[in-house]
Design a protein around this nucleic acid. Structure first.
Length: 425
DNA sequence: TCTGGGGTCCTAGGACCC
DNA sequence: TCTGGGGTCCTAGGACCC
């Protein structure tokens, strides 16, 4: 029996989320910007057609935007995350095996399902469009890497009507199609490797499919052996239907303005550490080290640059925000140089293990451990109930002058009562 | 003036051990 | 002339993804 893996991918996801609540933007050029309104991270088809690339700096395209009436939104992750979970939950009803791969993509195992898989894909499309309002494309193939390509084909070629099933094609038909796609479109072949492949005569996906895996492995890495197998229809990547615990948890952000103030950096460090440790507790893990780093703006070449990080080990693996904040401040004071204007501070939790594997030591203070646990539980409970950041450490600061800019955010239509969408009648 | 954030995997090289 | 060899662990950095 041939495996059938479907990849369902939302079209221009963030832009599509905004359009759900502002349908008048259908057919208009729309972008969604990254934090600080820095880069373009989601583009409508109209904007792609204008030649705007992914991650283009927004300030550089203000003139183009004005000329074509491009509508720009700041990122509204509360909205995107909520619509994503609705899409994923609907999709879960179409297969017993689902891997939620990212905020806007999901793999589904359709192996052994009777009937036309392409028609089944159309049903998924209609359902999601009708229930959530988001347009999606579906690619179906015997491996994940091919399913990704099938999805690409479905998006680019209107004659497929947004669903492309490689399994329903003959070998020759498929190879002809693969010969027409550039090798850089393959999942795992990035902008660095694509030119190197072209140097050795591999231009199309078909070229890559027919390459001797051993040669690629020697030149690049084992990853390529796997990619070639996957292109030949041999599934090497299993469907991961249980989400793994994160092995590292990062929280970092650029400031709304450059700052040389240690007080600002300390506030940000505490705020980001607090967020990271919340995520750590959410997955019921503990960590025993914190890496903190600072960075000046690398684009300002006229400024003296400083980029440094430091790993601060904890006395013992922990999940108490206070222990990590102490470590973060300790690390920050060692790497901070007052003569620089910093753009960013970030923290990363490392050496993460499940809380159930906490080692027992001779010096365990069980009472203190219990107090810490109760405090963190109360903190998380209140913040979940009353909104993130309701209760926080004083060190985060009340007036966060370094906080990021978000000048044109839409409302949190689906997750906040005061932002609820009321249909104009 | 203004250039994102959060993750994973792989490799190379050094330290260390026997 | 000629300076062991193999294994493991850790870290930094690159590449990639969304």
């Amino acid at each position: 029996m041939k495996r059938a893996i479907a990849l369902v991918d939302c079209n221009n996801f963030y832009v599509s989320c905004e359009r759900v609540f502002q349908p008048k933007l259908e057919g208009k050029p729309v972008v969604v910007l990254s934090n600080n309104d820095g880069c373009v991270v989601s583009r409508s088809q109209e904007v792609k057609d204008l030649g705007v690339t992914m991650a283009a700096p927004w300030y550089q395209m203000k003139a183009l935007a004005k000329r074509h009436g491009i509508v720009a939104f700041s990122s509204n992750y509360a909205l995107y995350a909520d619509l994503s979970s609705r899409v994923m939950s609907l999709l879960s009803q179409f297969s017993p095996q689902q891997e939620v791969y990212s905020i806007d993509e999901s793999f589904l195992d359709l192996s052994g399902m009777p009937g036309s898989h392409a028609e089944y894909g159309q049903l998924m499309r209609r359902t999601i469009r009708q229930c959530v309002g988001i347009p999606v494309c579906v690619g179906i193939a015997p491996s994940k890497t091919l399913a990704k390509l099938a999805n690409h084909v479905a998006k680019k070629n209107p004659q497929f009507n947004s669903v492309c099933d490689f399994n329903s094609m003959s070998e020759d038909e498929l190879d002809a199609l693969l010969a027409s796609i550039e090798v850089g479109e393959v999942w795992g072949v990035g902008r660095r490797t694509a030119p190197k492949l072209q140097e050795i005569g591999i231009h199309s996906v078909l070229d890559l499919k027919r390459s001797p895996p051993g040669r690629l492995r020697a030149r690049f890495s084992v990853v390529f052996e796997r990619i070639v197998s996957e292109l030949n229809g041999v599934a090497c990547l299993e469907l991961d239907d249980v989400p793994h615990d994160k092995q590292q948890i990062i929280c970092s952000r650029s400031f709304g303005m450059l700052t040389s103030s240690l007080a600002d950096l300390e506030q940000a460090a505490i705020a980001y550490t607090t967020r990271a440790v919340e995520k750590l507790r959410q997955q019921h893990s503990i960590a025993s080290a914190l890496h903190i780093y600072v960075r000046t703006n690398p684009h300002r070449t006229q400024d003296a640059q400083h980029q440094q990080g430091i790993l601060v080990p904890l006395d013992e693996p922990d999940d108490d925000t206070r222990a990590f904040c102490k470590a973060a401040l300790h690390g920050l004071r060692q790497i901070y140089r007052p003569e620089h204007a910093y753009q960013k501070v970030g923290v990363m939790l490392a050496d993460i293990v499940p809380a159930s594997e906490r080692p027992r030591t001779l010096f365990d203070d069980d009472a203190a451990r219990e107090r810490s646990k109760s405090l963190m539980n109360a903190l998380d409970h209140i913040n979940r109930r009353m909104g993130s950041g309701t209760l926080r450490l004083l060190g985060e600061g009340a007036n966060q002058s370094w906080a990021m800019r978000r000048e044109s955010s839409s409302r949190r239509y689906t997750t906040e009562w005061e932002d609820l969408f009321i249909c104009p009648s």
